[in-house]
Amino acid sequence: MRVTFKVYRYQPEVREDPYYDSFSFDAEPTDRVLDGLNHIKWHLDGTLALRRSCQHGICGSDALRINGVNRLACKVLIRDVGSKITVEPLMGCEVIKDLVVDMDPFFGHYRAVLPYFMNEEAPPDRERIQSVEEREAFDDTTKCILCAACTTSCPSRWANPGFLGPAAIVQAHRFIFDSRDRGAADRLSILGERSGVWRCRTIYNCTRACPKEIQITKAIGEVKRRIVDDRS
């Protein structure tokens, strides 16, 4: 099938303002959008800048705005988005070049929620036992690959870049609800601040954008509930 890619370009060393380039070529319907971008870079315009690493939906480096919605380019087939495909960088992040955005603020928010295991108690002889039910409490949020598709689909984040965003809250949820962890109070204190969970307006854009199908709005709701319950 003949496909036309309309690609956002920003090449500050050549041109001051962003613009769009169009590329038409033949592709298989079962090709992924990432295959199309690779074709452009390898055969049509080598100056196109984009991120990709594992190319199989694990590393999360190729999250892009494809036909108006955030997705992983390596997980979307061309037949599912049609023959006219518009590819743009993630919204609300500073564009460094073409489709490559500055992820430092995103990872700064990630680090702010203390996303690591915290437990000062002496470890048991063998292992910290956890029941199936205890594990289920945070099973879903362990799937996050930090692609930023959720955070950059959030209107609250667009309006308030200081908002921690869905991905950081999901990462905090993963440890807050882990029965072995003892750092929940510290994390809930951070998430209860103005830039925390209360900036969430229950819009569901994050849940729709997540390539790993994490129930993000539910996870954020659970954190909100936990903060309220702990205060009362």
């Binding site: 962003p18 036909n67 919204m91 500073e94 569901y204 854009n205």
Partner: peptide, 25 residues
């Protein structure tokens, strides 16, 4: 010169969110 953020009022409206996004707007 500051970098662009791919964020404008037009892009806010053009994001293809679901029912929740429409109701929020």
């Amino acid at each position: 010169m500051s970098r662009p953020t791919n964020l404008s009022l037009g892009r806010w409206f053009s994001y293809r969110g679901g029912t929740g996004y429409l109701l929020w707007a």
